[in-house]
Design a protein around this nucleic acid. Structure first.
Lengths: 327, 327
DNA sequence: GTGAAAGCGCTAACAT
DNA sequence: ATGTTAGCGCTTTCAC
């Protein structure tokens, strides 16, 4: 920056000012500085800038995994929105490990992140302590309905389970099954399951749950369907913890010539790309990962710009039942 | 850090040393420092550290989008591997816009990134200039077979096209079609297409190409299939630029009762989760996004640790044909 | 094995 | 509108 300053025959602080608020510098001087920057190929250091300003333009985003289409959507929307404010996304994956999450939070704090985005409401005590001590704005995403650290954007998963159960019952189903994967790790899937079972009980309909220890992929859908039919031969309505599982099950139904939805109704979660074009198109419940990303960006923007945020605020992005032909 | 130092009755530089190389400090002093850190809830500043050491523990990863399962896989594997070396991933999305990429590279340089990961071999002149001037290790991923800036990890997409064409011809197909999406932006899909057409010509088999302007999603698969059959009623072998498209087309074939693979062979690219369980299971060509991520992590680790890297190195992760039942 | 001192490249009062 | 000055919180010689 000094090199630029001497080349433009101004002081370093004028260069700094020009970089941060060009309109505060006279346009003639501005032009000379811009030229000097260009000639020298000068790239300002955000590291030094962050240290001096005691605020970094980094937002730490911590999700289970971007391989999961839900989180990929949120991260993508969030990154795009934040980039417009010249905020950078530092990405971390927990792989559903809360201790890993704590380590990532520690790193975020080390970067003096302008804000931290966490997935879900369940965290270690250490994570909470670190965050509470730091005064960094925190947004918890993809879950609502529990005690939150600071701000939250998401929806209530128990309510999703309720919608699923109600819908299947309305479609005349009387032997329900909720099928999930890795629900010990995925607290949100577990919440959908509980909501489902509670609602079925409330409606006086028989319901059970079943799960696979592996990740919720299309490949295990057929396995789970087979297992389900073995354990509950008379099941007539199944809700899956996501569309991948449902699609796999649907494939297996085709192979077994099980009539969907006559003999068996299938309900997914996520409204992923393939759901509208499968045979038959999959009825599913749609959350909006993109909307979550946008709302989070809005909250962070406010917190960073005006240095004022509303602790305790929660934004409900809701869910929508998308009725198609598998129910 | 001074607070920690006074509480532990040592000098700040001893605390610093302890943090970076605990074994260089006597264990008794180490214990006292560790206690002080804990008591005070001290979290070291990577910003100040980066400035003082003139090297930040950040790796900038710039991909078109993590919504794309291919890049999600690579980013995920890369982040996991780098985290072990306490390197953090700064994520950027170009959405296939090369100017956006240049802006992200500028940001990466501003962070004094320890390394920069770029997707593909096509970049603006400005991007090349910035990178060449900076001496930052650069890894270009997901593409091989052109001039590279520094290191590269990926595979040759023209060869993928060749494999596709050869395979279809071997399966007795004589009217070939390559179906892609957004190939003006997606240079790699375009390369697969060229390789496909060139090989078909070489083998003396009729072949054409067709494309959709939108993104390569399952939903447009049916559209493209319809369009293809209209323009080329006698086509008997189709290669798609990815499995999403192929799956959509497969769904449409089911609806139209087109016998796959008898009447029409379908070949995908990507080996995504659903490909092994669709009806029938999809023949596809498998790249390894995960392997790419791991190899990139290895190169970056070397470059960061030993400060020595091999400019010009290229690592071929190859591709594999996964024969299933749609061809 | 530990400490003193200099500085990394900026920002932000404040003065002019 | 521009310049002067004093740090931001660390790392890294170098000396002890």
């Amino acid at each position: 920056m000094s090199d630029v300053a001497s080349r433009a025959s101004v002081s370093p602080s004028t260069v700094s000012l020009f970089l941060r608020r060009p309109e505060a510098v006279s346009s003639s001087v501005g032009r000379v500085i811009a030229r000097a920057i260009d000639d020298l190929g000068y790239v300002p250091s955000l590291v030094a800038g962050g240290l001096a300003a005691a605020s970094s333009r980094v937002v730490s985003v911590i999700v289970p995994s971007v391989r999961n289409a839900f989180f990929a959507e949120t991260v993508s929307a969030l990154q795009a929105d934040l980039a417009r404010e010249r905020l950078n996304v530092l990405l971390g994956h927990t792989e559903y490990d809360l201790d890993e999450e704590e380590a990532l939070v520690r790193t975020a704090l080390s970067w003096r992140a302008a804000a931290i985005v966490l997935t879900g409401l369940t965290h270690t005590a250490g994570t909470r302590r670190l965050l509470q001590a730091s005064a960094t704005p925190v947004v918890e995403i993809w879950e609502l309905g529990g005690p939150q650290i600071d701000m939250a954007v998401g929806f209530d998963h128990a309510l999703v389970g309720e919608t699923a159960a109600r819908h299947l019952v309305e479609r005349g189903r009387r032997k329900l099954l909720f099928v999930g994967a890795r629900m010990a790790d995925d607290r949100r899937a577990a919440a959908r399951c509980s909501g489902f079972l509670a609602t079925a009980a409330h409606l006086g309909v028989e319901a059970a749950a079943m799960e696979h220890p592996g990740p919720a992929t299309v490949e295990i859908g057929p396995l789970l369907l087979a297992q389900a039919l073995r354990a509950h031969p008379d099941v007539d309505g199944m809700a899956f913890s996501n569309d991948h599982l449902a699609l796999g099950a649907l494939f297996e139904c085709q192979r077994r010539k099980i009539d969907v939805p006559q003999r068996l109704a299938l309900l997914g979660f996520g409204d992923l790309g393939f759901s509208s074009v499968s045979n038959p198109p999959l009825t599913t419940i749609k959350p909006s990962g993109e909307l979550i990303g946008q709302e989070v960006a809005r909250l962070i923007r406010r917190a960073v710009e005006s240095d004022e945020h509303t602790p305790g605020i929660s934004i409900d992005t809701h869910h929508v039942l998308v009725q198609r032909l598998t129910t």
